[in-house]
Nucleic acid binder design. Structure first.
Lengths: 216, 216
DNA sequence: TCAATACTTGTCTATATAGTCAACTTTTCA
DNA sequence: TGAAAAGTTGACTATATAGACAAGTATTGA
């Protein structure tokens, strides 16, 4: 009421939902966790609503339907994914490039476990909602990165290995710490993975990958 | 009708469902694929029934309910899992032991992709139905296998690495070829993973792991 | 202050789903 | 051969779920 009087100060041109679209973010966050845990079919709009602490009907204001919500969540995830993937850039020193990339991937697993799990669930289900992404951006980028490895191999900077398998191994190893967390916690007898434990894991992976590829 | 006449030959003491329990196996097989693809909540009894080509009510004759069916599927999977895990046995030569183990794991991924995916989905969901297994058998066995590595390290047969990370890396890398198949197919521009391609992947993994751990 | 627009939400509906049940058919074994 | 047991199945029920909708409230810019 009191501050109503002060709102005559112009806030610039009108943008829909400038303030209350925080609801949208809450819903997206809750949806990411729900989809990551239960998959597309197993997730329910009701649980997402409860988790986001909004009425279920509110979700349908921001998202056309369950598939639309899932698509929005997936898009967010893929953007993050691409960002990290692009860290694998051309550079003279393979040890430097791969070391940084492994660190970046591990950091992603630690700070975005739900995104990693969502991606994994989608893949395991046959990637029914990712075909466009995989066919377009992914395919192209993958080939580009592979050529970097071919270059290193030609320059005798690393062993003659199929670059694809090296990449798969890095992806697999780093994502494992997010996706298979329950197994890791029990095997290592801990309650949660600390930042330090992630760093140790990253160091082990870097040691094995770099030495194993003959990079030094 | 005709062979009815010959059935007076004793077939030994009566065992429930000796013949028709093939339905049970059909259901289990269909359920494994359905649960692997959609997770526990996302799977439906109706689709399992259709896939197994039996009426839905028949499933409830063999399995108390959805959870019971899931438990049976999971138990099958874990038995297979243990069999492969136990191949990682004590032996003088780490190169030999790890090489065989990696081959065994890759072979498992190739021949039992659904089992691998089911296990992965369960883990990603927080392993709600695996706590007993993880707490008991798993924990114990994991520690035993770790001590083998410690022994090798003490004997300077491999680099001083945390054995847990080496194991995680082997698991991650080998399971990846089953769990992330869509990604692999698109990246490698193929329609399906052949036995030969699995062998090449196994060779790459063995190269990197063995050399990376200083085994050789 | 006001009308327009953005946003919220309780209630309702159609459908999908897990599970039940009783009638039915087939197999078993004495 | 026959009675008992194993196995099968169509029809049913209760519930959970995605989504629609209309009536409401809050915010905006003039």
């Amino acid at each position: 009421m009191a501050n109503r009087m002060t709102t005559h100060i112009s806030r610039g041109p009108y943008k829909p939902g400038r303030i209350r679209e925080q609801s949208r973010d809450l819903i997206l966050q809750a949806a990411e966790a729900e989809f990551a845990c239960h998959g597309f079919r197993g997730a329910t709009m009701q649980r997402i609503a409860e988790s986001a602490q909004v009425p279920k009907a509110n979700i349908h204001y921001y998202f056309s339907n369950k598939l639309g919500l899932y698509g929005a969540v997936l898009e967010n995830t893929l953007n993050l994914w691409d960002t990290v993937f692009n860290e694998l850039s051309s550079h003279d020193d393979p040890a430097d490039v791969l070391g940084r990339y492994i660190d970046a991937k591990m950091n992603f697993s630690r700070t975005n476990p739900s995104a990693s799990r969502l991606f994994a669930k989608e893949m395991i289900s046959g990637a029914p909602h990712l075909s466009a992404y995989l066919q377009q951006d992914y395919r192209l980028w993958f080939k580009q990165r592979m050529s970097i490895f071919d270059c290193w191999i030609a320059q005798k900077k690393m062993d003659d290995l199929d670059p694809a398998h090296v990449i798969f191994m890095i992806w697999a190893s780093t994502q494992y710490y997010a996706d298979f967390e329950p197994q890791i916690l029990i095997a290592t007898d801990t309650q949660s993975q600390s930042e330090a434990s992630y760093q140790q894991a990253a160091n082990s992976i870097k040691h094995i990958i770099l030495k194993g590829c003959g990079i030094g």
